[in-house]
Computed example of a mutant assay.
Amino acid sequence: MVSSNRLTKLLLYVFTGMVAVYLLLPLLMIVMTSVGSGSASKFPPEGFTLKWYANLAEQTQFLHAFKNSLIASTGAVLLALVTGTLASLAIVQYPFRGSGLLRAFFVSPMVMPKITLGIAYLILFSKMHIAGGLFALILGEAVIVLPFVLTIVGSALANLQPVYREAAADMGASPIRIFFTITLPQLKLSLLLSGSIAFVFTFDQVEAALLLLRQDSYTLPIQLFLYMEKWQDPTIAVVSVVLITFALVLFLLIRLILRSLTGMEGMLGGRKKQRRS
């Protein structure tokens, strides 16, 4: 029995290691390609050099496109968080006839083809005379990531205990004050998680951005495609390495925030137990 358990653990470790290698190998290839001395992206590289990192510093369009991506993603996430939280609050805490149908309607962009949404946004925003800029992209991307916020925040709202809201209402607090002082602090983890997922999703969004934006408002994925149409050098791999580093820093930052929030909740929970005892 003991040998069987050891064999099972060994097989699990081997399988986990194979999966990790499979996931890390493409990233390693990108890093190796970014320092290749050849004039074209090639693996394994013929030699090693950092000249392509210097070449990236000369490509100012990438920095401008990165700023546009940050602005569009941040704006879309904030808009989706506000609208998604309010919609979840209405559907979960104040249910009404047809609320399930409304929820399904809000979640529908998750299953719709993104190119179809992009064409629809192009027609709509052209009629509104706002197509071509980042504001139109923010509106379009907010709708695309709204299902993530609605699902995660809605699940968190459904699991909240109504005791604190009822106690605050009995003490004369208004619904708005109850939301900001009782409900919203309990949703901070779900808001952070849904916002993080939505940010990553919108940052790589291509279909709607390709149809809606003018040349001076292009985001980073579009500029990468345009660069690859003219050049096939390792500069693209360098940009990928920078984005991987950015994603790792963002992941570590989110993890630190989650640790601080869960630690704070644990302290508050411990104090509440002490007071009750």
Rank of each mutant, 00 (worst) to 15 (best):
S3P: 01
L139K: 00
A20Q: 03
L213Y: 04
M128E: 01
A131W: 04
I178G: 04
L56W: 10
K230R: 12
Y53P: 08
S39W: 14
L191V: 13
T116V: 06
P113I: 10
I244N: 03
G98Q: 13
A237P: 08
I138C: 00
A40L: 12
F148R: 11
T202D: 03
F43H: 10
P147C: 10
V143Y: 02
P221F: 05
T49G: 04
I71D: 03
E166A: 00
Y94E: 14
S260G: 05
L250Q: 05
F180D: 00
S37A: 14
S108D: 08
K9T: 11
L70R: 07
G36P: 04
I197N: 08
V239Y: 11
L28T: 12
I176L: 15
L150C: 07
M264L: 13
T183W: 06
V241W: 08
V92H: 05
M128W: 10
A65H: 06
N5E: 11
L7W: 11
A54Y: 12
I30Q: 09
A54H: 14
G133L: 10
L252Q: 12
V238G: 03
E46K: 10
I138F: 07
F199Y: 12
Y53A: 00
I222T: 05
I197F: 12
I197S: 10
L25Q: 04
A156S: 08
I257E: 12
G132E: 15
V77N: 11
R6A: 08
Y121T: 13
S34A: 10
Q93D: 05
G36F: 01
Q93H: 06
L250A: 09
L160H: 03
A104D: 03
A156I: 02
S196V: 00
Y94N: 15
E229W: 01
V200C: 00
P234I: 06
E58G: 04
E166D: 00
L139S: 00
S174T: 09
F135E: 02
L252T: 07
L12K: 12
S240Q: 03
I30S: 07
Y22E: 02
S69W: 02
L11K: 13
I91A: 06
V239R: 01
H64M: 07
F201M: 12
P44H: 03
F43R: 06
T60W: 03
P26D: 01
L56K: 04
S4Y: 02
G270V: 00
P95A: 03
V163K: 05
G75S: 03
R259M: 04
L191H: 07
L150H: 13
F251L: 13
G84Y: 02
M29H: 15
K273F: 07
A208C: 09
S73T: 09
R275I: 10
A57R: 09
T8I: 12
L157R: 08
V153T: 00
A247F: 14
S126C: 03
A169H: 05
I176M: 07
K67F: 12
L258A: 11
I130W: 05
K114S: 05
G100A: 05
L258F: 10
V31C: 08
L11H: 02
A237F: 09
V163R: 11
K67D: 11
S34P: 07
I152R: 02
E58N: 11
A247H: 06
T83Q: 14
Y218A: 09
F179D: 01
G47P: 07
T49L: 06
F180Y: 12
S126A: 02
L191E: 14
L187F: 08
G270H: 06
